[in-house]
Amino acid sequence: MKYIIALLLICSVAMYAGDMKSLNIGEQVPAFTLKNYDGKEFDLKKLLKENKYTVVMFVSTECPVSNAYNERMAKLDTTYSKKGIAFVGINANKAEDVKMIAEHSKDKGFKFPVLKDEKNKIADLYGALVTPEVYVMNPEGKLVYHGRIDDNKKIEKVTSNDLSVALDKLLVGKEITSATPKAFGCTIKRINS
């Protein structure tokens, strides 16, 4: 029995880290409807239809990496929402409730919604593992970018603004041909972790 439990533990860890399905570029993303911290409902399908591109960012109120990007996320939203790109935050961390998200969003001056992903169902569907982790979709709901915002937690050390470079390319009708850089951050604290 002891060995079976140990084996199951090892397998579950291996599955969690190594086999969790991550969406591929070009793949249709799963639809979702989630509530913003103010109670307003957001439907991904509607967002996709109304915007040139939709950026979904998995974020946290507590993760130091995600918090290092607060100003950058707010700025990206301000810059690109004028160009027809919608920004949406999703908080899937089990220990961060709607009240925390509301306070954090107001404190950081986020103009974009931050939706609560109860029981990390959407994070599981997307295979999102860390905060911040970004997904960009075209109006058809196809994934066109998945990865990081830029290459450094410290803004003064950034050498590659990957997300804005990708968005600028998309806005002029260019394809993102290079592999999208992997997101790096704090692991999303899931209900089963």
Binding site: G18, M20, S22, N24, G127, A128, L129, V130, E133, G147, D151, N152, P181, K182, A183, F184, G185, C186, T187, I188
Partner: peptide, 19 residues
Amino acid sequence: SPEPFMIAMNPKWNGAIGL
């Protein structure tokens, strides 16, 4: 940066990199 380490350690890994 930590990224080259993580990519080199498992080039097949398609997901994000967490700690």
